[in-house]
Every structure is written in structure tokens, then in C-alpha cells.
Design a protein around this nucleic acid. Structure first.
Lengths: 195, 195
DNA sequence: CCGATATTTCAGTAAGTTCTGAAAATACGG
DNA sequence: CCGTATTTTCAGAACTTACTGAAATATCGG
């Protein structure tokens, strides 16, 4: 590997973090390299930059494509495949969160739905099922929120994130303005289960 | 392993998902078992329920404690350690997200801060550093939002999640009510960098 | 089609992780 | 303190994942 120090630091870091992110070192490094690169790179560029085998790069790129994290491009008069990350970093985040949800949450959500259909016999099983229902309801709330937020334009999303919990203040203001004084509102319905 | 089918299904699933979540099979199974159990369990209970070695359970419990995901308890007149998950599932989510942030995001955030202090020489390095700045700003926005939201009471948090992007409507309403008509507001400041 | 260039597949090996049983350490009641 | 109950540590075995080089496959210009 022979990269400018700044770039090398970042690439090596991504490689090391890979294992925590559920990808392997090479995949992490390839991604970091593409992310920082001004221009798209072909497989041999990556081999040279990272000093790993050609086949390893091929597999890594395949995995990144499976994650929808890289874009395949071509240059006129050049048969090789060139790869790049999206320029828009928010697009990257959206893809990343989407894919992680798909891999890490959706299977469990499906299982919970199935298991909640079954009949629980013993008290032990009934307690377990109640726990699973709590988890299920929580998943539904989170994924519902996520689906909703994912639809927002980036500018709106940034606006929301910047506000943070100050949104709360606005909600309270709204309550004060529009809810019948003394009324409790319908807030309690939102809680998925008695905790 | 000899568990009621409902419980066994869930426990095995958590074991299989473990690798996607960055924990190993046994740790996943132990956690699932504790989560579903009405009462705290000791290490031998877990050995019996899962059919794994005593030492493996010991290590698994240690890891779960490092994640702050289980609580150690004692019973009067019994020297053994008993383990349980928090009853409040929202507490579990908060811990989980905290820990994942600590392991998966914070180290990169630190690295980005460091690398952005350095002087970029070549145009290649300057472009890379610009990319890192985009990532850095995005991390700052996300972690700022997260710190903010993590402070909310659970009830408020649920309220917010239930609203989802409908918050947007309320923001628009607020804008209409309070912003000088024709004024552009200060929204654009929020965008961390030109994308 | 042919030959050259580019990519993918795959078997074998290297490296890393998980798990076990045995031994060591710790904690406690008497 | 001693003996016992309990937990932890650890070396090695079993298993899983990552990586390589070589061979196979695919693609394209002529």
C-alpha cells in the first residue's frame, strides 16, 4: 500500500472498523478508498492502492454492489469496470441504513410476527410471548417511523435532525394551542405496551 | 437444548442473527433466553437450557455485562450470580444504541477530527479531506441529534416516533405562523456542507 | 470467430473466532 | 483458616471466514 498519509490513515481505519460493521477488512478498505477518490477506480487501481490480490478485490466489489454502496461506471474506449461511491453523502447514509435494516432487523421482525401467531400453552410460554409482543410492537414503531422519515427530502431531514429534541417544544406549543384545556389528549395510545 | 418450542424458536433465531449483530451465537442465545425469562437465571440454568459449556456461558455473560445488557442480581441465601435483562424494553433499546454508537461510530468520529486537523498537500489529498469533512459534519449532526433525543423521557420519545414525518407538517405550520412572510428563515445554515 | 483483455470462480490455505474441559482463582459459611 | 461452591482463565481443538493464485469464463475489437 502506497497512499498519501492522510488517505492511508482513513483507509486503514475503515479496514479495522470493518469487523465491527459486519464487513471484512478488504471491503472496508475498498470502500474508504472509493469514498475519498475524486475519480472512479477500476479493480487494478484498487489492487495497486491496497496491495491485495485481484480476486479479493473482485469479491469485495461484488459485496459492495450487493450492499448498493458502489456504482458501476464505464469510460469511453475502456472496457474495464470503474467504481465510485455516490457523491451525495446523504444518499450513502440512506442506503446504509436501509441495508442494515434489511439484514439486521427485518428477519427478526418477520420471526416475531410468526411466533406471535402461535398458541402459548404454559404460563412460562405466555410470559415469553408477552415479551415478544413488546419487542414486536417496538419494532413496528421504529420501522414505521423510519419508513416515514426515509421519505423526507434531505433538506427537510437535516432540518429535523438539527432541531433534535427541540421539536418537543414545538409539540408542547401545539398541544397548548389546540388541545382542549384540561383534556389528556390521546397520547397514551402510542405506548406499545404497559412497561 | 430442551425448551418450549416458542422459546426455542426465538432463542435459536437470536443465535443465528448474532453474527450479523456483532456478537457470537452463544451470546445471542443467552441474551434471548434472559430476555424471555420471567425470573433471573444463573449460569447453570443457562448451561442446561442451551446445552453449551459452562465456560462458554461464563464468557458470554461477561460480554453481555460489557455491553450493559444484563443486570447481575443475587438471591438471599444463594451465592450464585443471577442475571436478568431490564424489564423496560425501551431501556434496552437505549443501552443498545448507546453501545453500538460507542463501538461503531465514536472511533471513526475521533479519527475524522484528527485527520481534519492535518494539512493536505496535493489536490488529491485536499479532495479527500473535503470528503472527510462531509462525513465529519454528518456524524456531528447525527450524534448531536441522538444526544438530544436520548435525553427525552420515554413517553415523549414514543410520541415523537409515532408522529414520524408528520412532525414536518407541524414545522411547516410553525413556519407559517411565526416566520416573517417572504423571509427565507435560517434553514440553509443547517446543511453541513455543499453536497 | 480469434485473440486479447478483463472479470469471476474456486479449491486450498491462512488467519481469526468460538468453544470446550481442565485447572486456577475467588468467595463464602462454618 | 479450611473446605466447598462458584466463577474465571486458558491452551488447544473445532469451526468459520478471509484471502490467494490458478483456472475458467465472459466480453469486445477487429
Amino acid at each position: 500500500m502506497n497512499l498519501p498519509p492522510l488517505i492511508q490513515t482513513f483507509v486503514l481505519h475503515f479496514g479495522e472498523m470493518g469487523s465491527r460493521w459486519g464487513i471484512n477488512r478488504t471491503v472496508g478498505q475498498i470502500y474508504a478508498l472509493l469514498f475519498l477518490s475524486r475519480d472512479p477506480l477500476n479493480a487494478d487501481d484498487i489492487v495497486e492502492a491496497l496491495g491485495v490480490s485481484r480476486s479479493n478485490v473482485s469479491m469485495g466489489l461484488k459485496e459492495l454492489q450487493a450492499w448498493n454502496l458502489v456504482r458501476l461506471q464505464h469510460r469511453p474506449g475502456d472496457r474495464r469496470d470503474y467504481f465510485a461511491t455516490p457523491d451525495d453523502i446523504w444518499q450513502i447514509v440512506r442506503t446504509l441504513v436501509d441495508e442494515r435494516k434489511k439484514r439486521e432487523l427485518d428477519p427478526t421482525q418477520t420471526l416475531l410476527r410468526e411466533v406471535l401467531m402461535q398458541r402459548a400453552g404454559t404460563p412460562e410460554e405466555r410470559h415469553a410471548q408477552e415479551r415478544m409482543r413488546e419487542m414486536h410492537d417496538l419494532f413496528e414503531l421504529l420501522t414505521g417511523w423510519y419508513a416515514d422519515v426515509q421519505k423526507l427530502e434531505t433538506e427537510r431531514l437535516i432540518q429535523l435532525l438539527t432541531l433534535g429534541s427541540k421539536v418537543q417544544k414545538i409539540l408542547e406549543m401545539k398541544d397548548r394551542l389546540f388541545v382542549v384545556p384540561g383534556g389528556r389528549g390521546k397520547r397514551r395510545d402510542a405506548k406499545p405496551s404497559e412497561s
